[in-house]
Write a protein that binds this DNA or RNA. Structure first.
Ligand SMILES: [Mn+2]
Ligand SMILES: [Mn+2]
Ligand SMILES: [Zn+2]
Ligand SMILES: [Zn+2]
Lengths: 144, 144
DNA sequence: AAACCATCTATAATCATTCTAAATCGACAC
DNA sequence: GTGTCGATTTAGAATGATTATAGATGGTTT
């Protein structure tokens, strides 16, 4: 279970380095923000969040950094919405509720969830991960 | 299990009508093609396939028609690739392998697969469906 | 200081998808 | 047959997320 908290600059630096990422100012800033919120954010979200702070970061760098973080396993991509990729600072195995109306993603703890009976993988294939997305729609009639 | 076969014009017409869809020439053509292949296709795929035949169909109509079919439950959308939506003529519950390198989607029969221990849904939410996507990557070293 | 290399940035390009507004079509009425 | 009407289709423009380009910037090394 990922705990929402603030990391010191040293912890963030070590975190990036542990993943083979050169800890630049922009990358540290984006990492700080990702792990402070511990929520599912889009590139646009990150771009806006990072630019409420003092130092501006370009959109290109936001995309490059999120891509780099995902590639190095610091965060993971969640493909649930056809319009944008979500980035998830929680890389532990877990699943998602997706509210198709609002676009809200919510974690489902892997603890207790069992998926059995999956067929064996095609020849020569390695499993990268299993995504489970439970699509939800809020009932039209609100509880009164 | 969806069987790959050709439908008569009458069967297709009845199929659309059963889903509350006015069976126009373009819609019948697209439906015919979808159910003949019984594969996962993108809008672009459908656009190209439908335009190898005699009667041309516009891109706008392809998108409108696929959207309409999905909305009425004749086909389903699969969100697996961040770059495009796949449309699946198989609406029976089933899951997918997704080859992240090639973008290839392959069915996993729901038969035998069990997902247990999912938490109860948030208050007032209805489940629209459960998507399971097993992400695969072909091993770099080919079997020799 | 000059060279070097990684990174960052503004901006253009790409590309799937959606939007717009004008044709076209088909059923029905006259 | 001709006219009308609503539904559908269409070409093309617009949108928006993402990626590509190519030049600036910033440390670091000699
Ligand atoms: Mn999209
Ligand atoms: Mn995309
Ligand atoms: Zn998550
Ligand atoms: Zn399928």
């Amino acid at each position: 279970m990922l705990v929402k908290r603030t990391y010191t600059q040293e912890e963030l630096t070590a975190l990036l380095q542990r993943h083979g990422i050169n800890p630049t100012a922009q990358r540290l800033e984006i990492a700080r923000l990702l792990f402070a919120r511990a929520e599912h954010v889009s590139a646009e979200d990150v771009f806006m969040l990072v630019n409420t702070a003092a130092t501006p970061v370009s959109k290109a760098t936001v995309y490059n950094t999120l891509g780099l973080f995902a590639e190095r396993g610091l965060i993971r991509e969640v493909i649930a919405d056809p319009n944008k990729v979500f980035y998830d600072p929680n890389t532990a195995p877990h699943y998602h509720f997706y509210d198709v109306a609002t676009g809200q993603l919510t974690d489902i703890d892997a603890e207790g969830v069992q998926i059995t009976g999956l067929p064996s993988l095609p020849e020569g294939a390695r499993m990268e991960g299993v995504d489970v997305i439970v699509r939800l729609r809020q009932s039209d009639r609100p509880t009164h």
